[in-house]
């Protein structure tokens, strides 16, 4: 399978202004993140709140302009496109947003909320509404809902509308940014299954962003773990969940509540200590070192490069440089 979307060392930092408009510093939200999304695959991006997941999604669509890096969609670098070309390419990457209560225009009917995307792209209103009906049906909303306003719908129903709105442009890539986080557990499952079904039906490639480890595991073929704007580990979902390598991934998986008794994880003694450091002036070298039980002196000076630890499985940690594996696994 080919990669439909390739991202290489994309970075973004936001300047923080002091009292007199002078730059006081910069919040490094995303730093040198690279990944590839396979055609019709699902890549899950997981990490704590504030680790740059949502910023990353917005960088891909250029809703926020990246500082550096490359985003290649079927070979074309999106970051070099002019505004008119960008509008074209944006249609092939649609996003489902986190908050269903703010992602629909409250003054438009459900139907128009969905149809809007088509009619701004040159379709007649009538044709757009006809297509909107089709997609509302595809996400499982009865026809009678089309004329309602968003305030009369529940969170799960609104999220379905948001999905229909994303799908109506027939994008090959769907980005779900915490798309189920605001929903009840029972509704979450329905929406997740809807994503799975639609993915098959419309041959979508899915970029699934969530802080919920279980949700990501359920959805993804491949998983990428982010910490404070950097990728610490990425690999096939089954490998990553069964044998996590990076101390952060291990700690993250340990901290997830589990119903199973006597689960053997690689390292039982790595609860994450402390708080996520401020992305304003993040730790030097490895960004996780301040909370890492295995941190050593050079972690502060050098940024660890990704090391290959298995098929498609990469870890950015000095512990796994050739010859060092033994120290952790034991």
């Amino acid at each position: 399978m080919d990669a439909i979307l390739e991202v290489s060392s994309i970075s973004k930092s936001f300047p923080v202004k002091g009292g007199w408009g002078k730059a006081k510093g910069a919040v490094s939200a995303v730093k040198e993140v690279s990944f590839a999304l396979q055609e019709q695959g699902t890549l899950g991006i997981v990490g704590e709140s504030g680790c740059g997941k949502s910023t990353l999604a917005r960088l891909l669509l250029r809703l926020i302009e990246p500082d550096a890096g490359e985003v290649r969609f079927r070979g074309n670098n999106i970051l070099e496109l002019k505004d008119s070309e960008l509008q074209q390419i944006r249609q092939s990457m649609q996003m489902v947003f986190q908050n269903p209560y703010s992602s629909l225009n409250p003054k438009m009917t459900i139907l128009d909320n969905v149809a809007f995307n088509l009619w701004v792209n040159g379709q007649s209103k009538q044709e757009a509404r006809k297509r909107a009906h089709y997609y509302l049906e595809a996400v499982g909303l009865p026809r009678s809902y089309a004329g309602r306003y968003p305030h009369s719908l529940s969170g799960g129903q609104r999220q379905r509308v948001a999905i229909a709105r994303a799908l109506i442009l027939e994008p090959p890539i769907l980005i779900a940014d915490e798309a189920v986080s605001a929903l009840d557990k029972s509704v979450q499952a329905q929406v997740l299954n809807l994503f799975q079904d639609l993915k098959k039906e419309f041959s979508l490639s899915l970029l699934f962003i969530s802080h919920d480890l279980n949700v990501v595991e359920y959805m993804s073929d491949e998983v990428m773990v982010m910490y404070l704007g950097t990728v610490v580990e990425k690999g096939p979902a089954d490998r990553l969940y069964s044998s996590p390598y990076h101390p952060y991934t291990q700690a993250l998986l340990n901290s997830a509540p589990s119903m199973e008794v006597g689960v053997t994880t690689l390292n039982k003694h790595t609860p994450i200590k402390g708080e996520l450091p401020s992305p304003l002036n993040p730790p030097s070298g490895c960004r996780f070192r301040t909370r890492c039980n295995f941190a050593e002196e050079r972690c502060a000076h050098q940024v660890p490069e990704p090391v290959k630890v298995g098929p498609g499985h990469e870890v950015a940690c000095f512990l796994y440089e050739t010859g060092h594996e033994a120290r952790v696994v034991s």
Binding site: L63, L86, Q87, R90, Q91, M93, V120, A162, A166
Partner: peptide, 8 residues
């Protein structure tokens, strides 16, 4: 944001 990303 959704409207912007639709190319409007």
């Amino acid at each position: 944001e959704a409207a912007k990303s639709s190319g409007a």
